[in-house]
Design a protein around this nucleic acid. Structure first.
Lengths: 226, 226
DNA sequence: GTAAGTATGTGGTTATAACCACATTTTGAG
DNA sequence: CTCAAAATGTGGTTATAACCACATACTTAC
């Protein structure tokens, strides 16, 4: 199986496990590595799943596409992080979103559904896995709340500033790359792409930001709040 | 201590515990009952917390108020449910939102922070608590995603329909009460209150819905989608 | 390098929501 | 019941985003 166990032991899901525990966990989780091309759908909305994915290479976006073709991007999942764990752990809840490869990807698929079953197996690997998944889940919660903060301002500029401020804090720098192209950023902020481009243009003109492709720089001295 | 243990054993947090386990858990959690009046802030944004709240009576809303007085309501927490568990379980993360009593409330405050500590105590009550908290957390995730769905349509009507459809599904009826007054619904959907009233008026006129106070009825035969 | 294709930006128009002022209805206290 | 206060609704105006068409820039394959 083409996966680096040393790397896995550093991820939030398998943190703190011994080699033996990791092997036991991977076996119970029916771990398997899958590959996906850019823009290929990994998990489809509407299908129930007991599997979550752990990103080994590439990145994944979580999005919803309504019947009129409107896309809304909920989050972006980087290498080492997991997705769909919520649906895998809530029995009978069909996926409401698509998980899509944002680039060519290697994904470790894990059948985690059993963790939410009643039986109290106290194998140490299981306890550690559960503890880790709790940490992963509450973190994911913060990510989702974050998006709520980024989309609650009523103006495009407000949303852009909320998003960029929070990225800047996270990256601990005024200069950083974002994981989205313009269309994706628009779909993340729930605004029209051309309107977003226009607003970025205005903000550039006013000297608030530099924005070139997915690289941004905040010019706080120009009166950037937060 | 003024709390009904039989009731607690039915909540998602303490589900499946024996009396002894519940006592051990409550003691470790330094459980205490607090009372709050309508609109009193229970937990303030900006303060770190290792406590979560379990609603014994009344209900709580989770909201964010920016420096210009704009309110955004993230979720509504009913009797038996918990709030702030995310922040309590993520060390060093200050609360980003306020938890506010939506009516006069009795809240069981629980110091749950220790659950995210490293040490592997395998007391059964602790395992059950952890397992339950995982279930609670992933559920909370679905609630947060739900709000994303409700606020992603670009028009007020789209948001109202998304929200009401999902309430209708949840309540398994075309007729139901919502936990918000108009201003709160507007703040939940991130729209202006008067614009919301106007849109509800139009939808009433078109025969799509009946809406009186917080009681709604969907008239699907009139072409309500989903 | 060139061409084709993709991504990004911009002007113009229209639709819609925000905002303001105020009318009407409902609620609650006495 | 009466009054005051709060909640809800409505008309009118303005600000802004959506939408459309297209220009420009950038990327990739050849």
């Amino acid at each position: 199986m083409n996966m680096n166990k040393e790397y896995l032991k550093k991820t939030a899901v398998f943190r703190g496990m011994t080699d033996e525990e990791l092997d036991a966990a991977l076996s119970a989780l029916r771990a398997s590595v899958k590959e996906y091309e850019k823009d290929q759908v990994i998990l489809h909305a509407g299908t129930p799943t007991d599997m979550m994915g752990l990103v080994l290479e590439g990145s994944v976006r979580i999005e919803s596409n309504d019947m009129w073709g409107n896309r809304s991007i909920f989050s972006h999942v980087e290498k080492g992080q997991v997705f769909a764990e919520t649906y895998a752990l809530v029995p009978d809840e069909a996926l409401l979103v698509d998980a899509v490869a944002n680039q060519d990807c290697r994904i470790l698929m894990l059948r985690i559904g059993f963790l939410s079953e009643e039986k109290q197996d106290t194998a140490l690997w299981r306890l550690k896995l559960m503890s880790n998944m709790l940490a992963v889940s509450v973190r994911k919660n913060l990510v989702l709340s974050g998006r709520s903060f980024h989309t609650s301002p009523k103006t495009i500029r407000g949303r852009v500033m909320a998003y960029l401020s929070s990225m800047s804090l996270q990256k601990e720098s005024d200069e950083f790359d974002i994981p989205f192209d313009r269309q994706q950023l628009a779909d993340y902020l729930n605004v029209d792409r051309t309107a977003l481009s226009k607003e970025l243009g205005r903000m550039r003109k006013e000297g608030l930001i530099d924005a070139r492709k997915n690289h941004f720089r905040l010019r706080r001295e120009k009166g950037y709040p937060l």
